[in-house]
Design a protein around this nucleic acid. Sequence first.
DNA 1: TGATGTTACTTTACCGGTAAAGAACATGTC
DNA 2: GACATGTTCTTTACCGGTAAAGTAACATCA
Lengths: 347, 347
Amino acid sequence: MATKKTTIYEIAKIAGVSHTAVSMALNNRPGVSQATRRKILEIASKLNYQPNHIAKTLVTKRSYIVGLIIDNIANPFFPELTKGIEEKANESGYNLLLCNTGQDLEKEKKAIEMFKSKGVDGIILTTVTVDDPHIKPLIEERFPFVCLIRHPLYPYFKNKVDYVVIDNFLGAYKGGKHLYRLGHDRIAVLTGPMNVSTAVGRTQGFKKAFEEQGITLDPSLIKECRYSRSQAYAAAVQLLKLKNRPTAFYTEDDTMAIGVRDAVLEAGLRIPEDIALVGFDNIEMSALTGVDITTIKQRKYEMGVTGVTVLIDKIEKAKPHIVNKAVLEPELIIRKSCGYHPNGYKR
Amino acid sequence: MATKKTTIYEIAKIAGVSHTAVSMALNNRPGVSQATRRKILEIASKLNYQPNHIAKTLVTKRSYIVGLIIDNIANPFFPELTKGIEEKANESGYNLLLCNTGQDLEKEKKAIEMFKSKGVDGIILTTVTVDDPHIKPLIEERFPFVCLIRHPLYPYFKNKVDYVVIDNFLGAYKGGKHLYRLGHDRIAVLTGPMNVSTAVGRTQGFKKAFEEQGITLDPSLIKECRYSRSQAYAAAVQLLKLKNRPTAFYTEDDTMAIGVRDAVLEAGLRIPEDIALVGFDNIEMSALTGVDITTIKQRKYEMGVTGVTVLIDKIEKAKPHIVNKAVLEPELIIRKSCGYHPNGYKR
DNA sequence: TGATGTTACTTTACCGGTAAAGAACATGTC
DNA sequence: GACATGTTCTTTACCGGTAAAGTAACATCA
């Protein structure tokens, strides 16, 4: 802060009242006459008075700031999510403090501490692992927070954390069923890190679609990666070298699908003629003409909105014992990357 | 905030010293003996003491938070920029408060006021217009801020604002020269909003490449748009209907180029055989195989880093009279969307 | 008519830190 | 032995608000 701003004390002096009267007038609280109130408001606007939120926060314990922890804002999945969060938060009178942790647990811990220290009213977490060690203290302190996209799975957390996620199992099942019906059964599966709930659901759901048909996917074609284009690319390069190479790839995030696409095209193969491809998330890139990746859609903006809504509710209503769980339905978006139109299913 | 956290007063009581002694010990300032200091630190860590930044900020006037105002985080240009900003800020001990204004001046004003009221130490603005009405007060108050990507152009602002931008004129000139040398002179130009500096530079530089060859671009093919895929799409649809349609499109941002690409492909035309295309920014989508848009590269992450660096310098060094201007060099990235390899230039 | 409200304030305390000024005691110096 | 000089703390004030308790003037009512 660079300039000495006008305070309620200066206004009080000019108006000839106490600073408390000014505080009451400015906050539309009873206890001042209409005449005095008007006078105070007039002086305040003449001096271009802006309340000092810092001081207000110190005494009220409410900063009207929420903290958002994300893996990496540069991953195309997050911007739209963040936009939903930011816009809804703003609309509700909150600002957003942002922190990228790059899925580093130590950074996550520091970010949470920093947020609390800086007085945020609540935190949105999009990086939690299945057994995240940092949310137990938050639960115990009854500090308002919401898990978005991912949520912890360990039994301890059951009915203790609020979360907004999609049904990853179902989404993956739909993707798997799609590939199954198109006749694939030799499928490379590039999973996300198995310590996050999305990867767990997206892997189990996909397998389910085949297991219920009595098909077991070749475990040697299942590779755990991070949600990253380059890792998926590297994995795909290896898998494509196999003599008996897969006929399809399923990746648990669209950036990975793009990585696989890079590898496939680079190897001189075609999508979908040689390799079918299914991603997850439905990012903008997947929808481009000429890219056309079949994927499972998450309504990112809406999830962001829902996430803050739940959080702010938690903050303002202070219903400590009501745990909100929102599980949204995913949608299969069929594009050209798997070749056939649904009408043409083989089985 | 949900729980009563431990304060320096509690530590003081347990240690049997004054709270000031605790403050001095925790902040590594002289005035306490080694023995007392050690004792205090021990108690603090045992109680898991976390300083209350709000209180600290109130007295020191330093929040270690910077505000970032952007148009729209969902525009693929911004996430990487934001990442650079956030990571560098974090590294320097600052957090980032985010605000999307959607290029709405009224929202920009509110965001600035909110930021100041919430005590940010400085602001990064990426939405300024050429005659932005909201930065004059910031200049007068000597409130630390930096313009990133865009900067005001009116004479009043000359040597008064710090900024980090690229040489848009030069970048556009390179793009224009490229199209010129490939033989194009009937070119549709989709500009950004002419009240922002990027659009001004990107339009003038592009025209320059032709004017210096004695060629005047057909003004009826020049359309002002917002930096948006859908607006560019709509404009391109119209322009492609012309009997004497353009042979090339130049758009002042890659999302617009994608919009044009949509329109071209939808019209059953080919890129580059029927229509050449040049964008600006080099977003990830443009580089995809099969998309391959020739564009002018901005080093987004680095610009973000440079932006905060300048801002933090401003905040911490408090050199009010030194104005920093960083103008980075843009790079032409030649891809397939214009058809020919540089070796094959016609003129 | 005196007890009781009500209105419109003011006074004081407090939030959790930092900063400046002051005090108690040891040490060094001439 | 008197006095300046450090150390090591403590006391007090302050940042800019909110909240609770107190007060003075006036109205209401049994």
